[in-house]
Design a protein around this nucleic acid. Structure first.
Length: 806
RNA sequence: GCCAAAGUGGCGGAACUGGUAGACGCGCUGGACUCAAAAUCCAGUGGGUGCAAGCUCGUGUGGGUUCGAGUCCCACCUUUGGUACCA
């Protein structure tokens, strides 16, 4: 009987669906395992082989854990709000809901034809009102807790199109010849900074790749410093700067404020006013990209004003420059050119003095010295001296002195900024807030607040979302008076911030999640997705989770216990898969040609899961051949009767089986699927070679293979007389005694070079191995006429003789 | 520039805490079966040298530690990902 993968795969997929084979177990006495994929945005271009990599990995784990007695939660859903469907709507008038529905069913079909064991009864969709009701509910909680507020925020504004652009759209539009300016707009902002400390601290207990944790720490960017008040000469006020190097205060030779600083114009003396105003105007026109990325050369203008250095009473000129950011610290800095590379460049360009205050190995006029390990010099006044001290103590003494003088205050700063949470778009969750005529805001009294139908999806000319055009939806009145609804919608991040919770209790109309279920299933035991989400999605999600923890909605501090980033699969040309390169391998294409089992195995056989690796369609032939060999364990070529016998397999075969059970189980646990598959190949080859077709051997192979290639495993399992699905069968257990080798090959080296080998029982003593090694024929001639200086024996591995000529 | 990861045959990759480099698969070469092909099976396959047993070189480059280094240390080169003046 031929191995007809497409008939077999169709048969089992239909059967699994009919029998709800993969419905999540409810027996709470069993241990649980929650294995989750980063759910996809259902795009119009469909799934390609790269998308399937992570999903295959989680499916193998899901099936593996089931066979080891766990209740497994393995769900799938759709992150379906988002820009592409809206842009398509703007071009064609097609409602984003229709586009989304179409794409979702195409995605679902492809995933089903991969044989993934998702519990489809738990599918969620972020655009479903029953889902986003709770996204809105969380928003209102944030609002009640004072964590959501309205603020004027600079956005990328495209004058011609009258729209706000996402950062990634800016380049594209500029290339198309549009102008983009920074312009303040009323926005909802979430106070993620209030959680900065906890977001850093709680990384500690997570099983995440160290580099992802590091990236999150860097993004949050905690720094300890001092805010110092500089008295302004002739102004009667102070200028507050933030520094992490109060130990270099004696080396400050000028101050710099950002062009947007409230004092910028006030500080300009009459003679400098025109120049200062022009500089501020120019800065306004620059986009963030121009101010940061492209511009290496420092620019700036002198205000004409001076501030007094509290440490030594010197008058320091105050400059304006756009390399100082308004949004960080106080928007003003003290410059210590000798010990900060940016300050050094600026000082060189504008001829400002450079003074060494930390002992430097070279002349600071020639090059900057930023090291913290040297001692301070030239740093003392009548009240304080830090000369001879290194960074830590110098910092402390200066901070204490400044505090005692009332000129400074220790301060912890974060790079992390509050999260701009509104979008001027149609296709997103409406922000459920009413604005009343008296200027007050109140939450919508009943959720969900759904999207109205609109005629046009273009934003309005004022920059508001299309919702601002729908009067019936927009205006209303209640006991508090007339109101206008909020026209901003939420960003795509919103729905993906908490979806892992809804999978636990997807239909609950009363609550976001049932507490008992939450306690059983949380947290997520394994979360697999692309490294591109290492910072934002995971940080936002952790933030919301902590808020929900504070509200008592969830019982864990963190949502995702173990995180794994799969590496990208490149096109056959070793380039990132993209439409424009034309190197995309569509999932359906390879599925039709080779079948789900082959694609699943090949995706995993390609290389380590975390590694970036190119696709090569030719290589899948080897997997097809392997599956053929598995099939022929049961059905010999051109025969329709199974050849499996009930004979007990030979001792050597039994040992081989136990070794394979151990190796494949260990590798699967560690997500080392490529080597697990290699072991299966070796095992199957050896069974054929040994002519062993005993039931015990063949069934073991099927059980080991089942998480990886479930369709063929089910089919042959049934052929061998089992009525129940192999997915309910237990993972085989190995006997450590049998999984061990009795005889090992010992390598014999002379001066570290391999000169021969011999077989020996594993338990051989060092003396036995030495005696044996000296008699190996190919070794003898290398020992002749040599004095053995040293004998090294590694039991079970090798013997090495270090020799010298006599 | 900075941070992170990685460089192993023609290709994807394997090698436990330093211990026989190249498992497994692709490709290629030769052979069996066949009228022929497909499928399948068998043998070979890092470079050099040799009839051969073998010898020798070999894990990005150059040094080092060690009886022994793909693995550890130092310097450098290259690639990929992240990031963009955070005081």
């Amino acid at each position: 009987m031929r191995y007809d993968f497409s008939a077999i795969e169709r048969k089992w997929q239909a059967r699994w669906a009919d029998r709800e084979t993969f419905a999540t177990g409810t027996d709470q006495d069993k241990p649980k395992y929650y294995v989750l994929d980063m759910f996809p945005y259902p795009s119009g271009s469909g799934l390609h082989v790269g998308h399937l990599e992570g999903y295959t990995a989680t499916d193998i784990i899901a099936r593996f854990k089931r066979s080891r007695g766990f209740n497994v939660l393995h769900p799938m859903g759709w992150d379906a709000f988002g820009l592409p469907a809206e842009q398509f709507a703007i071009r064609t008038g097609t409602h984003p809901r229709l586009t989304t529905e179409k794409n979702v069913s195409s995605f679902r079909e492809t995933l089903k034809s991969m044989g993934f064991s998702y519990d489809w009864g738990r599918e969620v969709n972020t655009t479903d009102p029953g889902y986003f009701k709770w996204t809105q509910w969380i928003f209102l909680k944030l609002y009640e807790m004072g964590l959501a507020y309205v603020s004027e925020v600079d956005v990328n504004w495209c004058e011609e199109l009258k729209v706000v652009l996402a950062n990634e759209e800016v380049d594209e539009k500029l290339a198309d010849g549009y102008t983009v300016v920074r312009r303040p707009l009323r926005q909802w902002v979430l106070k993620i900074t209030a959680y900065a400390e906890r977001l850093i601290e709680d990384l500690e207990g997570l099983d995440w790749p160290e580099n992802v944790k590091q990236m999150q720490r860097n993004w949050i960017g905690r720094s300890e410093g001092v805010e110092i008040d500089f008295e302004l000469r002739c102004h009667g006020t102070n200028l507050k700067v933030y520094t992490t190097r109060p130990d270099t205060l004696f080396g400050a030779t000028y101050l710099v404020i950002s062009p947007e600083h409230p004092m910028a114009e006030k500080l300009a003396v009459a003679r400098q006013l025109t120049e200062v105003k022009a500089y501020i105007e120019r800065a306004k026109l620059k986009t963030e990209l121009e101010r940061t990325g492209l511009q290496k050369e420092k620019s700036g203008v002198f205000t004409g004003s001076y501030a007094i250095n509290p440490a030594n009473g010197e008058a320091l000129p105050v400059w304006i420059s756009d390399f100082v950011l308004t949004s960080y610290g106080t928007g003003a800095i003290m410059s210590v050119p000798a010990h900060d590379s940016r300050d050094w460049e600026f000082a060189k360009k504008f001829g400002l003095p450079i003074r060494e205050v930390v002992k430097s190995p070279h002349d600071v006029q020639e090059a900057v010295f930023e090291g913290k390990e040297s001692v301070s010099v030239n740093s003392s006044n009548d009240e304080v001296s830090i000369d001879g001290l290194t960074f830590g103590t110098a910092f402390d003494r200066m901070a204490t002195w400044l505090e005692s003088k009332g000129r400074g205050k220790r301060k912890v700063n974060y790079k992390l900024r509050d999260w701009v949470f509104s979008r001027q778009r149609y296709w997103g969750e409406p922000i459920p807030i009413r604005h009343y005529e008296d200027g007050t805001m109140r939450p919508e009294p009943s959720l969900p607040l759904t999207l109205p139908e609109v005629e046009a999806y273009q934003p309005t000319s004022t920059g508001e979302s299309p919702l601002a055009n729908i009067d019936e939806w927009l205006y209303g009145s209640d006991e508090h008076g007339k109101f206008r609804r909020e026209t901003n919608t939420m960003p795509q991040w919103a729905g993906s911030c908490w979806y892992y919770l809804r999978f636990i209790d997807p239909q609950n109309a009363e609550k976001l999640i049932d507490p008992a279920r939450e306690r059983y299933w949380m947290n997520v035991d394994l979360y697999i997705g692309g490294a591109e989400h290492a910072v934002l999605h995971l940080l936002y999600s952790r933030f919301w989770h902590k808020v929900l923890f504070d509200l008592g909605v969830v019982s864990t501090k963190e949502p995702f216990q173990r995180l794994f980033n799969q590496g990208m699969i490149l096109g056959e040309d070793n380039e990132k898969m993209s439409k424009s390169r034309g190197n995309v391998i569509p999932a359906d294409h390879v599925l039709n040609a080779y079948g789900a089992d082959a694609v699943r195995l090949y995706e995993m056989f390609l290389g380590p899961l975390e590694q970036v690796k190119p696709w090569n369609t030719n290589g899948i032939e080897g997997i097809s051949r392997f599956l053929g060999k598995v099939w022929r364990l049961v059905f010999p070529e051109n025969e329709t009767t199974p050849r499996v016998t009930d004979e007990k397999p030979a001792e050597a075969v039994v040992k081989r089986l136990h070794k394979a059970i151990r190796k494949i189980g260990d590798d699967t646990d560690l997500l080392k699927f490529n080597t697990a598959i290699s072991e299966m190949m070796v095992l199957v080859n050896e069974l054929h070679k040994a002519g062993c077709y005993s039931r015990e051997a063949v069934e073991t192979v099927l059980l080991l293979l089942a998480p990886y290639a479930p369709h063929i495993a089910e089919e042959l399992w049934q052929v061998l007389g089992h009525d129940a699905s192999i997915s309910g069968a237990a993972w085989p257990v190995f006997d450590p005694g049998l999984a061990k080798d009795d005889v090992v090959t010992i390598a014999v080296q002379v001066n570290g070079k391999l000169r021969g080998t011999f077989d020996a029982p594993v338990e051989s003593t060092k003396e036995e191995l030495l005696r044996e090694a000296k008699q190996v024929e190919s070794v003898v001639k290398f020992l002749e006429g040599q004095a053995i200086v040293k004998e090294i024996v590694v039991p079970g591995k090798l013997v090495n003789f270090a020799v010298k000529p006599l």
